[in-house]
Design a protein around this nucleic acid. Structure first.
Length: 294
DNA sequence: GCGACAG
DNA sequence: ATCTTGTCGC
């Protein structure tokens, strides 16, 4: 699923003499939450026949343009769009009748389906623990570090094309292709992943998704709270306990592990603010990106 | 108007 | 995570 291409395909549907908004394209992708990502994807658009200048803010403001706002205004006027007090009348010019298959809706359904295979039962021997992370530049650089106790026994990096932007709650679809490359041929007892597990609006964040796909115990580690309420460091979504805040990080079970065990293991690796397997993977992924891209 | 939005 | 084309709800 290349969401960049989907977005460009949708944008090309906006006819001359009409405009659309970042939010309307996001809705055509399947979720308004992607509106900011739509802006980013259009900013990176490489195709000359994609009319990015026809996409404006939801309040009628013209918005930005990679080639300069003046250029955007000029091209809109050439299309016959009136701009009064720097605003465009969306009642008059809005196009939102996109032909679309709502790709993000399909991805949500994939999360809901796979979620049936998730378990929070502890059922593993703790021998080795892996940390995994991805760093982004022109390409994505993934890093895998495996610990036996406090000793590093394996390091590995991969490089891949970026095919999906960061969209809150769809993070897995950006990062999974790289993590899948990394885990190939590896068998850690458990993997620590940068991102959430159960701590997710559909109770199926990256750590859970990755865990279920590989039938592996996983722990999700996030540096910011995506959703939920904190009471005495326990994290709740509604009245479901989905994780726990430990110092400055948010820990949630991915797969094949309980909240309590996920916390216990995480605490054992808290040398700095981020648990050591994640921290080491993060460093290695960044090093690899800098080495390749300067 | 300002903050929130896993990375 | 980088680098800066959003939207909504408080």
């Amino acid at each position: 699923m290349n969401l960049y291409e989907e977005t460009y395909r949708l944008t090309k549907q906006i006819p001359k003499g009409m405009v659309s908004t970042y939010g309307e394209i996001a809705k055509a992708l399947g979720d308004i939450i992607a509106s900011r990502a739509v802006g980013r994807m259009l900013n990176e658009n490489p195709y000359e026949d994609v009319p990015c200048y026809r996409v404006i803010y939801s309040d009628g403001g013209v918005g930005g343009y990679a080639h300069g706002i003046e250029k955007k205004v000029e091209m809109l006027k050439r299309d016959g769009i009136e701009i009064i007090n720097k605003k465009i009348d969306l009642k008059k010019y809005l196009f939102k009748d996109f032909k679309t298959s709502y790709p993000l809706k399909k991805l949500r359904e994939e999360q809901e389906k796979l979620k049936e295979k998730l378990t929070l039962e502890d059922n593993f021997d703790l021998k080795t623990i892996a940390g995994m992370d991805v760093s982004y530049g022109k390409y994505a650089y993934g890093a895998y570090i495996e610990f036996d106790g406090s000793r590093i026994i394996k390091k590995k990096v991969v490089k891949a094309e970026i095919e999906f932007p960061y969209i809150p709650t769809y993070f897995a679809f950006r990062e999974l292709p790289i993590l899948q490359k990394l885990i190939k041929g590896e068998k850690p007892s458990i993997a620590m992943i940068d991102g959430n597990g159960l701590l997710h609006p559909r109770f199926f964040g990256l750590a859970s998704h990755f865990g279920v796909l590989n039938e592996l115990p996983t722990i999700g580690i996030a540096k910011k709270l995506l959703i939920g309420n904190i009471k005495q460091n326990d994290i709740f979504i509604g009245n479901k306990k989905v994780g726990r805040k430990i110092n400055k990080i948010y820990v949630s079970p991915g797969n094949k592990i309980s909240v309590a065990t996920a916390c216990k293991i995480t605490k054992n690796y808290m040398k700095y603010t981020i648990p050591e397997p994640i921290r080491q993977a993060h460093i290695l992924a960044n090093e690899e990106r800098r080495k390749n891209e300067g």
